[in-house]
Design a binder for these strands. Structure first.
Lengths: 212, 212, 212, 212
DNA sequence: GATGAATGAGCTTTCATTCAT
DNA sequence: TATGAATGAAAGCTCATTCAT
């Protein structure tokens, strides 16, 4: 039964194992990552892994949690600032931050995500979803005129899921046909166009109703 | 050394193995799929697999090719029809067909995709990309007024990558917060809004330039 | 999932594994016997073990079954002959046969028993018990005058459990203080003495009752 | 290098480890007992075990010694009293005491014996043997008329080895077909019958020799 | 060509033992 | 002296791959 890391040294070992997990998965993929690799990269004995983790899967889970918390924190941190911006600018900033997040530490998270990302429904996705929904709520509070937009859930679902995947896909593309900024610009502009168009339609409808 | 399947019997065996591969991966996932499982489901001996495939990876590759060809064919088939539609309608039809494609045969492709989908850059992605670009080209030929839209590559990149992922993500979501139609509608409307907005901007710019 | 051995070759492999199991356990004991040892001694690959046995425990179970069946067969075979003898002679013959059984094949069963024998209640014990009880029943049918003996269950329990253990213990004793024949003679004579004494007591009681 | 426990504290620790060993083996068996378990049950650190014991085997050896000493002491204690009794009564008392010995402390020794008992020739057996032989000698001193019995070594070998095993076997039997008293009675009566019968034979022989 | 028994490298996991604190 | 984190040899077991039939 694995101990919970209470002491200084333990914490360092646990962190080293998780970090080694990211490196191994980023380099070789989930299937080719062995406990021996992780131990070697972490600079600890194989046995030490089992001091702190129930089994190999538990390491993957811990990695997923670290990644998710880190990403959620990043989004939460910039949420206040984003709510002050236009839709397009908010998205530009968010995507830029996402890029920086994925590329930090020599693209560790990005390369990890490439190998570990799957469509299996996971707790991780739910958490990120919630943080993004919170961002959306905060944004709408600051921009109440947008609350009447049609199909906000559908649009945000697309922006959240599609956007993040498109970004990762692009960052991992060895020979992208477009620049990152073009992609970000497309996402930002599409979202803003949608809002403007919808508001224009509403305005037209309202005046039509009024005049009738 | 695997022979290329020239004969009737051979082709049937190869197909059975590939089909069995889809079933196994859909049911158990990549990691838990063994050559024994595939052979049993295919109704052949393990040895026969190596008669037609270099190794296990070759089966996965063949599966990926079948999936890709099948999807590409579907898109190619509806391309002529899509070019006759508005942007929004073209996307609605495309997404509806994508849904049907993924859900056919008891969701075999969808469940396969859930387990096998990854961000590894693959030939498969390139092929689908090309078919979608061809669709885009055909569409622009029929709608030349759209050719002047800004950042077409960026927008299509987002629609292609983000759209397909959002669709799969939604179809696999055990408790989706929105309906499929809401998601499809969001994608379709956003694209159309973008086009309209851009055209409106262009018109405004032109008249401004003219009047000046 | 292990196959059941249907073919000639399979049967030979299974037998070789079981035989190797006896040898390994006899030589090193249960704890020190590894699947690799068994495979090496059996002259097969480790993988082959798992073609035919669920796990290591299944080999031990199969060994136990072989041992038990073999022993039960031996007892069953001599049962008819034993019933023709006096108690003492029947026991002498039985013990002599038990000795031969345990010592055959260079004492394989004996050395196996030394390492594997335990007091855990097992199916094996139950089966041998039943065969011995059957022997007892057959004997009593041929010697009805003994059926009135007091406490037959208690006496037979002692003779069966105590006797077999004492025999094994003696055969394994590197420096026994008595000969095998002395031990066998003690068991045989004690049993016969008990019968005679009891019958004498009964006779005395009966004549006492009659005369009273 | 383990020190010999000279101090108060040390002795207590050693005892706690040995006691913990009994508990662990009784509960889980030899194979499943780990040094960690023992340390935890003993309430000491794993390291402390190696302060007092060369290795794990040394704990098992110490346990065996404690068990043996305890049992030997019990037999030695009742030896004087047993010599005053008839053979049958002496055996009844001995077996009753053995039962109580094995069942004390929630059957700790009995459950330990079930898991640890084996036919491996051990110092332990030799010691118990000696104590029982001493008992036999004392008994014969008090009952000199028995000294002429035939095959005393054989009979006692059977009673000692067979008797103790039969008793343990019975106490561990989850569904015994006879009561403990029936078993004890069988052992006691058989021994006494043997003595009586032999004495009767002797008497007959003597008178025959005399008369001839 | 088709088979599946046989293989063994290599996986995850355990645990007796050590040693810095 | 007492500790328990760290270790790594070695266990049980899997499964892609081969090859005699």
């Amino acid at each position: 039964m694995p101990r919970s890391p209470k002491q200084q040294r333990s914490k360092a070992t646990v962190d080293a194992i998780i970090k080694a997990g990211f490196i191994c998965v980023a380099d070789k993929g989930l299937a080719a990552t062995t406990t021996r690799h992780i131990a070697k990269v972490a600079g600890v004995g194989v046995g030490s892994i089992y001091e702190y983790f129930e089994d190999k899967e538990a390491i993957y889970l811990a990695m997923s949690e670290v990644f998710t918390e880190d990403l959620a924190q990043m989004i939460t941190d910039i949420t206040p600032r984003l709510t002050e911006e236009t839709i397009a600018n908010a998205l530009r900033i968010l995507l830029e931050n996402l890029k920086a997040f994925l590329q930090k530490e020599d693209g560790l998270y990005l390369r990890y995500g490439r190998k570990a990302a799957s469509l299996e429904y996971k707790e991780s996705q739910r958490i990120i979803n919630n943080v993004l929904i919170e961002l959306l709520m905060q944004y709408l509070l600051k921009h109440p005129e947008l609350a009447s937009l049609k199909n906000i859930p559908g649009v945000s679902y697309f922006l959240m899921h599609g956007g993040s995947y498109a970004i990762m896909s692009h960052l991992l593309d060895p020979a992208p046909t477009i620049t990152f900024d073009e992609l970000a610009e497309a996402i930002a502009t599409m979202a803003e166009s949608y809002a403007k168009q919808q508001l224009a339609n509403e305005a037209a409808n309202n005046s039509a109703q009024t005049s009738s």
